[in-house]
Design a protein around this nucleic acid. Structure first.
Length: 559
RNA sequence: UGGGGUGUCGCCAAGUGGUAAGGCACAGGACUUUGACUCCUGCACUCCCAGGUUCGAAUCCUGGCACCCCAGCCA
């Protein structure tokens, strides 16, 4: 039997093709050094997982290494809370950056020196236009920009101004450092992009050491070069920034010139992936937090019961390319089921209980039946399940007036109780409102274990829990957060009102009382579940990770 | 009527001139003490469109069309 240690087949993709080509040509001394560069301004989500799997996966496969580098150049949006959660999530995903943990903020001094270098070479200048003026001078997509009146300051003047910017002599926003490239460049990113801004904000790592902070475009390539990155892989929206990335590295005396490669970010149907929108969901209280099990964050998915192996498998199946795409949620669910099917021990649990009384079973008797913990893998062992006169079965496993193809319990019908006995429904007890409240059944003592000595067959097998031994639990059943495949515009309008359904009276087999947080279970015929951190010994709470595939539900729907 | 990208099955995605991989989904069937799993079978004479080159084109050329990204002192 295969296990989660299997390495899924890795599909070919254009990034690998580039790397293999480079290797064949002997570039970079045959080394592959990548980096995963999150900005610590939110929690990691499944889209980041795709990038992490790509970068760390490449490093693993080509005997290189992958650095974890925090791109923390904007203290206004970044917090230490995120730095911790990001590291926890990457480790949980199964990746190891070894000694290679870096912060762009650790490079601030070197970055500053590089900036002075640019100034001395006449390739950068201090501009004293306001933000609005800079925007006006930049031109538009179809019209060229015009040079700032400060564009021709001498290197000496610029150096003096820039040093005074650093020294804190100027107010926020009064000056910026800009690259001197070409104000009429067809690529707007090359129209003298801003390199440094003055911002009196305490940085989460450098405190108040700096009042000027470098911009992404200036920082990223230089950080890559200083770390000896060979392949700097980022998402498509940075494609138009590549000329600037290269310009900076060409103009400065850097140790190497990494190659920037862009790929399409992951989009998943029925959810949103932007950190801004996810933060809104958290801040508006739509979800309980970054780790709400409905969130596509790694923290949320972990709490939901999704395993790292499932996420890695999913990222592998999705592939890496350059076309914008919207991946079907069903693909993720498949990876989750595939992993859990192999690795989750089975349990019996009734989510919507209907009591049944086995009228010909002795009143005080309790016996134990043996149940396999995994139908295909004997190494999971077996457990003993208490069986008695009063049991709970799933309400939907009984129909008073069933359609032809329904092969579960109905008046006069015989079914098998999994690992137990054949039972036949004799009577239906209802309350005043006509609702079925209890079933009276008889059992065949000859069918212990689930098979009849006379060879007769039953069409259905249903799960059950002994009423007297059942452990009560709350079960949280999750569904997609949005009802639109591609939530856009006012995302609040497409929220799925049924994304969380809480069931309070669920009946679990006794062994679940000892479940621990790192375990995953399959509740037979129901789905995969795990304990929620809110759970305690007084009050069991379980999360449904994902349902089982249900071809009956599909057929019933068709009618 | 600026620049940069992308268009191959419902959704992903290989393919780089030699006659359309694979996965998900879906539809049949087998098996089954989970209507689960597993296993079979089916699912693009066609690759955004139109011309052209070639013995031969998804792959090359020309011209269209559609969609995405860029006008933060965000990343």
């Amino acid at each position: 039997m295969s296990s989660n240690t299997d390495t899924p087949p890795t599909t070919a993709n254009f990034v690998r093709a580039i790397i293999e080509q480079d290797l064949a040509e002997g570039k970079n001394d045959g080394k592959v050094i990548t980096r995963f560069p999150p900005e610590p301004n939110g929690y990691l989500h499944i889209g980041h997982a795709k990038s992490a799997c790509l970068n760390f996966g490449l490093a693993q496969d080509y005997n290189g290494r992958c650095h974890l580098r925090f791109d923390d150049t904007n203290p206004e949006k970044e917090e230490v809370e995120y730095i911790e959660s990001i590291q926890e999530d990457i480790r949980w995903l199964g990746f190891d950056w070894g000694e290679h943990l870096y912060f762009a903020s650790d490079y601030f001094e070197q970055l500053y020196d590089y900036a002075e270098h640019l100034i001395q070479d006449g390739l950068a200048y201090v501009d004293s236009l306001s933000a609005e003026e800079i925007r006006e001078y930049r031109g538009t997509l179809t019209e060229p920009g015009i040079p700032s009146p400060y564009r021709d300051r001498t290197p000496e003047e610029n150096l003096d101004l820039f040093r005074r910017m650093r020294a804190g002599e100027f107010a926020d926003g009064s000056h910026v450092l800009r690259a001197k490239i070409d104000m009429s460049h067809p690529n707007i990113n090359m129209r003298d992009p801003v390199l440094y801004r003055i911002r009196r904000v305490t940085h989460h790592r450098t405190g108040d050491t700096w009042c000027i902070y470098p911009m992404y475009d200036f920082t990223h390539g230089l950080s890559d070069a200083m770390e000896g990155i060979t392949h700097s892989i980022c998402t498509l929206e940075f494609e138009a920034h590549r000329p600037l990335y290269d310009w900076i590295l060409e103009k400065l005396p850097v140790p190497c010139h990494p190659q920037q490669i862009e790929f399409a970010r992951l989009n998943l149907s029925y959810t949103v992936m932007s950190k801004r929108k996810l933060r809104m969901l958290v801040e508006e209280g739509v979800v309980a937090g970054w780790d709400d099990p409905r969130m596509p964050t790694l923290a949320g998915m972990r709490r939901r019961g999704v395993t790292p192996a499932a996420i890695r498998d999913f990222c592998d199946r999705v592939g890496v390319a350059k076309s914008n795409s919207l991946v079907d949620l069903a693909m993720l669910e498949h990876s989750i089921r595939d992993d859990l099917n192999q690795n989750a021990p089975r349990r019996l649990a009734v989510l919507d209980p209907l009591k049944i009384v086995i009228t010909n079973y002795p009143v005080e008797e309790v016996e134990y039946v043996e149940a396999a913990n995994h139908p295909q893998d004997p190494s999971f062992g077996t457990r003993q399940l208490p069986f008695s006169r009063e049991l709970y079965i799933e309400r939907r496993d009984f129909m008073e007036d069933p359609p032809r193809k329904f092969h579960r319990l109905a008046p006069g019908r015989e079914v098998r109780l999994r690992f137990g006995y054949f039972i036949t429904c004799q009577d239906v007890v209802k309350d005043e409102a006509g609702r079925v409240v209890e079933l009276h059944c008889t059992y065949d003592p000859e069918t212990r274990g689930g098979s009849a000595p006379d060879g007769r067959k039953v069409k259905g097998t249903i799960h059950w829990v002994s009423a007297a031994h059942a452990v009560e639990a709350e079960v949280r059943v999750y569904d997609r957060l949005f009802q639109d495949e591609l939530p856009s515009g006012e995302i609040w309008d497409s929220l799925n009102p049924e994304s969380l359904q809480t069931l309070y009276n669920c009946k679990m087999e006794p062994s679940l009382a000892e479940a621990s947080l790192d375990e995953h279970f399959q509740f037979e015929r129901n789905g995969y579940f795990c304990l929620d951190p809110d759970s305690n010994s007084q009050h069991l709470i379980l999360n449904r990770t994902v349902s089982l595939r249900d071809s009956w539900a599909k057929q019933a729907k068709k009618g």
